[in-house]
Simulated assay, not measured.
Amino acid sequence: MTKYFDIFNGDADGICALIQLRLVEPLDAELITGVKRDITLLQQVTAAAGDRITVLDISLDRNREDLQRLLTAGANVLYFDHHFAGKIPVHDNLQAMIDESPSTCTSLLVDRYLKERYSLWAIAAAFGDNLVSIAQKRCSELNLNAEDIQVLRQLGELINYNGYGSHIEDLHFHPASLFHALHHFDDPREAYDSSPEVAILASGYAADMEHINALPPILATDIAAVYQLPDASWARRTVGIFANNLSQTYPERAHLILCPDGQGSLTVSLRAAKTHPHGASAFCRRYPEGGGREAAAGINRLPEVAVTELIADFERTFGSSPRKIE
């Protein structure tokens, strides 16, 4: 009997991509996901010949060995992603739609694959993934009004907010549970209006953002800034939204956000300047457990002793020497 596996990033892009696919083709699949930074998900899959695996919004490069293992076992893999992939394997059982352009995301790739069947979910994901201008362009093409645009933006940002944390306990909902709560809505505007999970996320988001918006940078210039967050669950939940908001507010500035992971190390979020959305992935891949995409990337675990050199490396790469903010 054929087994089905849906493997997806726990952020807005991964969840909204899977919602689109399962609205078109409902499947009783095993869901494998986690917090946003939990991306080596294929190692959790044991599949046999003929099994079908859908992979969404996790780096092929970080899952290369397990992907090859599954292909060798005879599984069929459908892979959508926009993160650094490296060399894409050539295999009869692999269908890969990977685009590392900073102007797309996984949900937009799925939208194209499905011939725009559920574009509103793709737009919500693009907003959540900080592709604001791209999402707004799609809204204009669909003649959406200002209220609808705001709803899609808020929903995408809330789903994305839920994905951030060092471990599942930091999140309001397990990403698989959030997918189950939302996947039956053809229209994300209906999900925003009627889902109790969305209401809980909105309340949590408002409370958490009161903390994060009060934090000043520790270093800053017009083109580069560094923020150090405290060791708290609310900080781990808001780090991604905070980084995205900063990049929208200061589009000519690159941002480095450091956040303790509650386990003795730090997670790092990097946003390249919106006016030059390149280099984030290459920078983070210099470090163990680093990766991402051209405009936005991160490092899953950085030792405390490496922080000083990381900031110096950031300054050399993205800007002139930051000055300390008094």
Results as ranks from 00 to 15, higher is better:
3 K>G: 00
6 D>Q: 04
8 F>V: 01
18 L>W: 05
18 L>Q: 07
18 L>P: 06
30 E>V: 12
30 E>S: 10
31 L>F: 14
33 T>C: 12
41 L>K: 01
49 A>Y: 04
55 V>R: 05
60 L>D: 09
67 L>M: 14
69 R>E: 13
73 A>W: 06
74 G>N: 03
77 V>G: 06
86 G>S: 10
87 K>E: 14
88 I>V: 15
94 L>E: 03
95 Q>M: 11
97 M>H: 15
98 I>Y: 08
106 T>C: 15
118 Y>P: 06
120 L>Q: 05
126 A>D: 03
131 L>H: 05
134 I>P: 00
136 Q>I: 08
138 R>P: 03
148 D>H: 11
150 Q>N: 15
151 V>S: 06
157 E>R: 05
158 L>M: 07
159 I>P: 07
168 I>K: 00
168 I>E: 15
169 E>A: 15
173 F>L: 11
175 P>C: 07
176 A>T: 04
178 L>T: 02
178 L>Y: 07
181 A>W: 05
184 H>Y: 08
186 D>W: 04
191 A>D: 01
203 S>N: 12
204 G>H: 09
205 Y>V: 02
209 M>P: 05
210 E>M: 03
212 I>N: 06
214 A>F: 04
216 P>R: 05
218 I>P: 01
221 T>M: 10
222 D>A: 08
225 A>I: 00
225 A>M: 04
227 Y>Q: 03
232 A>Y: 00
232 A>C: 03
237 R>D: 03
246 L>D: 15
249 T>K: 14
250 Y>R: 06
253 R>H: 09
253 R>M: 10
255 H>F: 13
263 Q>A: 11
268 V>C: 13
271 R>V: 10
277 P>A: 05
278 H>W: 14
284 C>D: 14
284 C>K: 02
284 C>S: 04
286 R>M: 07
288 P>R: 07
289 E>D: 15
289 E>G: 05
297 A>K: 02
299 I>S: 14
301 R>Q: 14
301 R>A: 15
302 L>C: 05
302 L>A: 01
309 E>C: 00
312 A>F: 01
315 E>F: 04
316 R>M: 12
316 R>D: 15
323 R>K: 12
